[in-house]
Simulated scan of single mutants.
Amino acid sequence: MKSPTLSVVITVYNEEDNIQPLLAQTYAALEGIDYEVILVEDGATDRTVEEVKKYANSRTRLLIFNKNYGQTTALAAGIDAATGAYIATMDGDLQNDPSDIPGMLKKAMEEDWDVVAGRRANRQDGFVLRKIPSKIANWIIRNTTKVYLNDYGCTLRVYRAHIAQNMGLYGELHRFIPVLAKQEGARMTEVDVKHHPRIHGTSKYGLSRTFKVMADLILMLFFQKYFLRPIHIFGSFGLLALFIGVLINIYMLALKIAGEDIWGRPMLLLGFILFIGGIQLITTGLIAEVIIRTYFESQDKKTYRIKAVYQGEHESV
């Protein structure tokens, strides 16, 4: 069976009132494109599944989870199931507009981009609870990861399939998909896309997600800089702590030899903690190095990806 040009992955959770217009708009936007639509139903408790079955066409597949796993897992499942050369992702709440997809696909194909990311030019969300936290999070992510996009929260993106399917989506890392794509060597660009106010259903996000973003950012920075060399971060901090601890302990020993009573002094406790903590950090780095090597070698994984191979056509002389 011939693979389509484009797979559109849409995550839905309790969106029963949005399904009919969502599918109608998506099918209309994709007319003239060889496509498939993959809907991932993330453990809905309403009639989302029934609505999809009522309105889905023959090019649509529905993946039904047995419970709610979250958006990252839903995206990962849809991307894994996709068979197209390009994969588009979007939310099922009608705030993303499917009519933007053909233009993004054309840009990716004609200009050889691996990822074309949407940027909500006129975002239709609450200013205090959504826009301000989003702007702060975007600024922090952009300046710490050095992946220079303006809108990390927009799900509407088009990827080359091999990039999307090798990103390794876990936990709640969907906010950091551009960073994961960059780690795969992706060439990325950003385009303005339409954004609509939510009409049906309720938002699944709140202010609490800001703290999750910050926690995930620490993980992403570790993945980005130290995943293949954990000893560099654990060992560096460990050696620094160990060195300071040794200096403090030598100083306290000198005071003891000079006849001063050092028992109970905070400096003595600090030296002991830094000494032991330094040893523990170095040990953690060594263990992490062993785990990384086991991860790659036990599964015959490579620490690199070859983008292309060219075979010369001239005979040897």
Rank of each mutant, 00 (worst) to 15 (best):
T26V: 10
I279C: 10
N14P: 02
F272Q: 15
K256N: 08
L75Q: 12
S3M: 01
G70N: 02
D114S: 08
T145D: 08
F222R: 03
P102K: 01
V193N: 09
R61C: 00
Y152I: 11
I199V: 15
A77L: 11
V9R: 03
L63H: 11
E297Q: 05
L268A: 07
T189E: 13
V49D: 14
A117R: 14
L62Y: 03
G32V: 11
N96C: 05
K204I: 06
T73V: 14
V52C: 15
L30P: 12
T144H: 11
P21S: 00
K194C: 09
Y170W: 07
Q224M: 09
L63N: 10
Y295P: 01
I141V: 15
P4I: 04
Y295R: 06
A28Y: 09
A74R: 06
Q20F: 00
V128S: 03
D261V: 10
A258F: 03
A29K: 06
N68Q: 10
I177L: 13
A28M: 00
Y251W: 04
L239Y: 07
V52N: 08
M220E: 00
T145R: 14
L75P: 02
R59F: 13
S3C: 01
A254Q: 09
I262H: 09
Q183K: 14
N96I: 02
D34T: 03
Q165D: 06
E313G: 11
Y159R: 05
N138Q: 02
Y13N: 04
D151S: 01
S99M: 10
F222I: 09
L62G: 07
K225H: 15
D125R: 05
Y226P: 00
D114R: 04
F223D: 00
D42H: 07
T294W: 15
F222P: 10
T48P: 13
R198N: 03
E51A: 14
R198I: 06
L6T: 07
G277D: 11
D300L: 08
I136C: 08
G92M: 05
V9I: 09
I282A: 14
F211E: 13
A29T: 12
